[in-house]
Simulated assay, not measured.
Amino acid sequence: MKIKHLTFLALALTLGNDNLYAQKGKPLFTEQPGMVSYTFRKSLSKDAAATLDTLKGLGIKDMEFSSLFGKTAPELRKLLDERGIKCSSFGVGYADALNKTQEVGQNAKALGASFVRVAWIPHEGPFTLEMAEKTVADFNKIGKQLKDEFGLTFCYHNHGYEFEKHGDGTLMDYIIQKTDPNYVSFELDMLWAFFPGQDPAALIRKYPTRFKLVHMKDLRKGVKGNLSGGTPVENDVALGTGQLDIPTILRAAKKSSIQHFYIEDESPSYATQVPQTIAYLKSLTY
């Protein structure tokens, strides 16, 4: 029996190695990345149609909007449809998600989105357990209404301050574990997980079914992080030129429930950095 067991183990290891060799050299990121509207916020505010033409030229077909840029949702949807671009996620403020859930749901549906996202929990000073408890209750309420009435998935986008220590983990762990997975999912922001000292890939592996969306961004080399949830926008750099281990994060993401991969670059240099980022993603292999 022992010999048979060892033979089986050797066979399994061999097959595993063959699998690794078979993957070696294959493209890691085969999707066309999506784009967060905030990257092109100034341009979209001035001329949405021309900016969407630029995005189409870059090959972007998937967007996350966090503003309607002075238009109605149907007007913005028309511009997107004309260019073959889809809005998969609609970002709103915490207060609107909580107090104008109906309006938010209607706008998201008009845009053609499947997700509604909140990226900031209003707070002053360090993020506390009491704040996290209120957040959990609010998110469960928002998520249930959006799911029941509109068939939408509600997501929370981490921003760094939620990684205050709590028990054996952090308050981000508390929020993930205490929210109802039927109604609340998450959008991982790579930079805002790394900045407060976390490992984005490990976070995905810890909660493989809770993250549905991801913001792909990199942090300038030499910049030290903290729990503030803020850093100058100039510290956003093209993927692959900063501190994050992008390939490892993407490998973890590929094995998770993440469905949409958005580029977000808040830097004023986005016009040169975005094409650089797209080229970098295409260059990655296993």
Rank of each mutant, 00 (worst) to 15 (best):
I3H: 14
L6W: 10
T7A: 11
A12D: 02
T14K: 04
L15C: 09
A22V: 07
F29Y: 08
T30I: 08
T30C: 08
V36H: 02
Y38H: 02
Y38R: 01
Y38I: 00
K46L: 08
A49C: 09
T54H: 06
K56R: 05
K61Y: 07
D62E: 14
F65T: 12
F65A: 09
S67I: 04
L68H: 11
K71I: 02
T72A: 10
A73Y: 01
K78C: 09
L79G: 00
L79Y: 10
L79H: 02
E82W: 10
E82C: 05
E82L: 06
R83D: 08
G84P: 07
C87G: 04
F90I: 01
F90Q: 07
D96Q: 13
N99S: 14
G105Y: 05
L111I: 03
S114V: 09
S114P: 03
R117K: 15
A119P: 13
W120T: 10
I121E: 07
E124N: 13
F127Y: 14
T128S: 13
E130N: 13
E133K: 09
E133N: 10
V136T: 03
D138Q: 04
N140V: 02
L146R: 01
D148K: 03
F150E: 04
H157R: 08
N158V: 03
F163D: 03
K165M: 08
D168Y: 04
T170H: 00
L171R: 00
D173V: 02
Y174M: 00
I176C: 05
Q177P: 07
Q177W: 11
T179H: 12
Y183P: 11
Y183V: 05
F186K: 01
D189V: 00
G197V: 09
Q198V: 07
A201K: 08
R205G: 14
L213V: 14
L219E: 14
L219R: 01
N226S: 13
G230T: 15
T231A: 15
E234M: 12
D236V: 13
A238K: 11
T241F: 10
I246V: 12
T248G: 12
A252F: 07
K254W: 00
F261M: 09
F261N: 12
P268H: 03
Q273I: 06
Q273E: 05
K282Y: 11
K282F: 11
